[in-house]
Structures are given as C-alpha cells and as structure tokens.
C-alpha cells in the first residue's frame, strides 16, 4: 500500500518548523505505524537527508515513550492503544496522514515529533510517591487492601505518562495524568499518610509547569491508551478540596521542582562557531 505523509519538521526548539510532505510507496499492512516511519527514515538517510525524529522505546504500548497526532487524533485512530501498537492495516491505500507533535506550553518541541515531557516527571517528583522505610521488604499481607481499592489503584496505575491526555485537551490540562497518580496512591492504605499534601503539591506543580485546567471536556479519557477514566479527576478535585479547606499549613507544597531537565540543552540555539 502507498501512504502519503505530511510530517511536522522542526530542527530544534528554537527553529520555526513546518509541515513537509513525504510519499511512502512500499508499505505493507503488517507494518506497525512506527515501522512505516522506519522505512521512510531509511530512505531519508540513504538520500543523505535528516531522518524524522520520533520517540519510541518498547513498541508494545507499555513504556509511554511514543506519541504524536495522526490527522488530529493523539496516538492515531485506534482506541486504547498507543501509536506503536497501531498497524498499517487500520489505514487504507493512498491515505494522506498528517503527523503533528503534542502541543502544549509545558511540552516544548525538541525536534520534529519529539517533545520534552519532563514536566510530567516533575509532577511525579512533587508528590507521586509514598515515604516508607526501605531496606527490608515488609510481609506482603501485613497491610490488608480491599479488593475494590486494589482494582481502582491498578486501573489508575495503568497510566504510562505518554501525554496524550494533555495533547487531546483543548486547555492542555494534565488533569487526567495528575488525577491518575493521585488516585493510584490515594486509594491505597499505603498512600494515606501523604494523601493531602500529595494532591496539593502535584496540582500546584502542574499549574507551575504551565498546564491548563480541567473543564470536563472528556477528550483526554477518550484518547488515553490506558483507558483512564474521568473519575480520577473528580477524586483529585475532592482530595484537593478536603486538603485545602482543612488544616492547610500542613498541606502547603513542599517545593516546586525546578523547570529543568536533562534534555533542555536542545532548546538553546547552537553556538555560533558551529553554524
């Protein structure tokens, strides 16, 4: 099958960027979407052109590395799946596909389809943990966990942090991501000690990173490859209100993690000597 692509090309964060058209004539329906891009990239490299940069790692939908929009749909047309799990059989011969990176103030484009999602890591760092003594593993059955709580926590923990929810949100809100982390730890007995501080810290970090707010649009949940439900946002809101309206002095965010990440050097313009 033959696929026509229109891909966002941007050399660096400082570069302006624009769409470039490509023609991939030798696609088979058994290829995954990323394998199709590999085929394109091999041709680009052979021709001496820079390949299309896109994130990928596990290519089986569990790592959360991949992700871009295909014709305006985060992770493409397949539901409950990442773009790496999407095969070319879901497209038709002669299809014109436009690939665009996640767009949000908190997700600066590094190159082509790669964005810096360090903001999500800093939300996790601000409260997505439980403080326990490590060193010796506790007895597994020492803390009884109700079945429903375990199920809800497991569902929320399915979030792979790909950022599709932010990409799909008209407000570029990270509420579904933050809500899934707050729910994951908040429904378990182990997460109770820091439950209030956690939700205040994490929502405050999300705001500081430049993510928008939730207006219950629901597109995030629809495109989520892990099928996270909107109720995690309700739980986050409830926990936040309880924390904010009760003993606030204990729930002030401990610190806002600095807006820096190992990948930030891409944003700086290259030194003049290299130009």
């Amino acid at each position: 099958m033959r696929i026509f692509l229109e891909i966002w090309r941007q050399r660096s964060a400082a570069d302006e960027g624009g769409f470039v058209r490509y023609d991939v004539p030798d696609v088979t329906e058994h290829m995954s979407f990323l394998e199709m891009l590999d085929v394109l990239n091999r041709r680009l490299v052979e021709a001496g052109d820079p390949p299309v940069a896109f994130d990928s790692d596990c290519r089986e939908g569990i790592c959360g590395m991949c992700g871009f929009l295909v014709n305006g749909q985060p992770h493409g047309p397949l539901r409950n799946a990442t773009i790496c799990q999407t095969h070319m059989r879901h497209f038709a011969d002669g299809d014109m596909l436009r690939l665009e990176p996640w767009r949000a103030a908190a997700f600066p484009v590094l190159r082509d389809l790669c964005v810096d999602r360090g903001a999500l890591d800093r939300i996790i760092a601000s409260g997505g943990y439980v403080t326990v003594r490590t060193g010796s593993a506790p007895e597994a059955n020492a803390i009884p966990v109700p079945k429903e709580a375990a199920d809800r926590a497991m569902e929320a923990a399915a979030c792979i942090g790909c950022g599709a929810c932010v990409a799909a949100c008209p407000n570029a809100s990270a509420a579904l991501f933050t809500g899934s982390k707050v729910t994951h730890l908040g429904v378990l007995p182990q997460g109770q000690a820091e439950r209030r501080r956690r939700v205040v810290s994490m929502t405050e970090q999300a705001r500081a990173e430049g993510f928008g707010h939730c207006t219950t649009i629901g597109a995030c949940s629809r495109v989520c490859p892990a099928g996270i439900q909107l109720e995690v946002i309700a739980r986050m809101n409830r926990d936040w209100l309880i924390a904010a309206l009760s003993r606030r002095e204990e729930e002030e965010p401990v610190a806002i993690a600095p807006r820096s990440s190992p990948m930030r050097f891409y944003e700086q313009a290259p030194p003049k000597t290299q130009r």
């Binding site: 769409f19 929009l69 014709n71 305006g72 749909q73 436009r98 665009e100 767009r103 949000a104 103030a105 908190a106 799909a168 949100c169 008209p170 407000n171 570029a172 809100s173 430049g210 993510f211 928008g212 707010h213 207006t215 219950t216 649009i217 629901g218 597109a219 949940s221 629809r222 495109v223």
Partner: peptide
C-alpha cells in the same frame, strides 16, 4: 481560566478535534 487556556497551548494544532466531547463543553 479562558485566558489561562490560551497560554497553556500557545501554538495551535493544524487540525484538531476534541474527540468524544460535546459541542456545549467546547
């Protein structure tokens, strides 16, 4: 919040459709 929303996505998508959302919500 409407002003904040414009700041949260300074570069607009070429084509974008908030899937599964109602016209009222948008």
């Amino acid at each position: 919040l409407w002003v904040a929303r414009r700041k949260a996505r300074p570069v607009a998508y070429r084509d974008f459709d908030a899937e599964g959302s109602t016209a009222a919500s948008r």
